[in-house]
Design a protein around this nucleic acid. Structure first.
Length: 355
DNA sequence: TCTGGGGTCCTAGGACCC
DNA sequence: TCTGGGGTCCTAGGACCC
């Protein structure tokens, strides 16, 4: 039997801020983009439970959060600092199992199958980890315990906030049955709407349906949904993720159709992309420009070079050319982004021939 | 109410090579 | 004269997650 834990840090960015500003504890705190007295164009990144009482939540437009609670504490996102804290969490987690996958800045999977042999042991182990994170790092977290990543993730959602939840193999179907289908991992808004239109409201509805009906509508993805709904997931812990792309994007304070202003922004974000490539010692071969217009329609245009490059001017020139080819004259732009992909690490030339 | 920024994976058609 | 099949890369777009 596999035993998988998902450690998910509670309201992580705010918890990090509480570490260095203990005086904000107990007050509604929102980490996100500058609300600019209600005119800000960003969203809430994280908020604590005091703020959630007022209906504020992640991904909510920051302007609305400001309207609801203008006297809440609004803090900017200090990603570099959260990353440092995140590292300490991962290091602590690795003490409990080397087979470890960091899925995001605030989530870590642990495969403890080698060390723990039964559910009781896994629950005790989760308690121990949770206590260590609390005692040593002074951070709250929730832990899901189950037999695969999907169920550990779903268990963790049920454990929040500040809890531990075990879902045994034999209890998986009953656990999932009454959860709304939109909460199933991998089912977003679009898929939720389509599934509802087909008559499926809960995860149990999908689990009891037949996979061929889902495959007809959703192709391969249908089968994945069906398996997930039945708590089936064979995916392994991936210890080392390969970086596939590096990009930056920026929303204008006001939508603009002015070419010079847009090109300035392209240069700005290209420079940031270049710095990140340099820091990670990457060459790139493909440049992609993303344009979001006022009405939120997005267009991508990309170009692959003949050879890998690590040159800033190449990013800028390619990106501006792509923008000129793609942009529709006079149409106002909300956001512009530059992304590089087909990355290769250059620690000396690659061998072409093997002798 | 008005919607960020960092990513990943999947699909599908066309080009091109063998 | 009529017409393969497999593999890989490129490009564009969509959906999803945190």
């Amino acid at each position: 039997m596999r035993l998988i834990l998902l450690i998910d840090m509670d309201y992580f960015f705010v918890a990090c801020e509480e570490l260095r500003h203990p005086e904000i504890k107990g007050k509604p705190v929102i980490v996100g983009f500058d609300p600019k007295e209600g005119r800000g164009r960003g969203v809430v990144s994280t908020c604590n439970y005091e703020a959630r009482k007022f209906g504020i939540h992640s991904a909510m437009p920051i302007s609305i959060a400001y309207r609801i609670k203008p006297d809440a504490i609004f803090l900017p996102i200090d990603y570099a600092y959260y990353e440092k804290v995140s590292k300490s969490v991962v290091e602590l987690a690795k003490r409990y199992s080397q087979k470890c996958e960091q899925v995001s800045i605030d989530e870590v999977f642990l495969d403890v199958s080698e060390k723990i042999k039964d559910y009781d042991g896994a629950s005790e182990y989760a308690k121990e980890i949770k206590r260590a994170i609390s005692d040593e790092l002074h951070l709250p977290c929730s832990i899901g315990v189950s037999v695969n990543k999907l169920l550990a993730k779903m268990a963790c959602e049920a454990a929040k906030p500040n809890g531990i939840k075990l879902v045994k193999q034999e209890g998986a179907k009953a656990f999932l049955r009454d959860i709304p289908i939109g909460k199933l991992y991998g089912v977003g808004q679009k898929t939720e709407e389509r599934l509802k239109a087909m008559g499926y409201k809960t995860i149990g509805d999908v689990a009891d349906s037949n996979s061929s009906r889902l495959s007809q509508v959703f192709k391969n993805f249908g089968n994945e949904i069906y398996n997930s709904a039945n708590g089936i997931d064979d995916s392994e812990i991936i210890e080392n993720w390969e970086v596939k792309s590096i990009g930056r994007e920026r929303t204008f304070e006001e939508d603009t159709a002015e070419k010079t202003q847009i090109e300035e922004k392209i240069k700005e974000v290209s420079k940031e992309v270049f710095e990140e490539l340099k820091a990670q010692n990457f060459y790139f071969k493909t440049v992609t420009v993303k344009i979001r217009y006022s009405d939120f329609t997005e267009h991508l245009k990309s170009k692959s070079l003949l050879h890998p490059s690590n040159d800033l001017q190449t990013i800028i020139d390619t990106a501006i050319k792509l923008f000129e080819q793609s942009a529709e004259e006079g149409r106002k732009v909300r956001k512009i982004g530059v992304r590089t992909s087909t990355l290769s690490e250059r620690k000396g030339q690659k061998k072409i021939f093997n002798s």
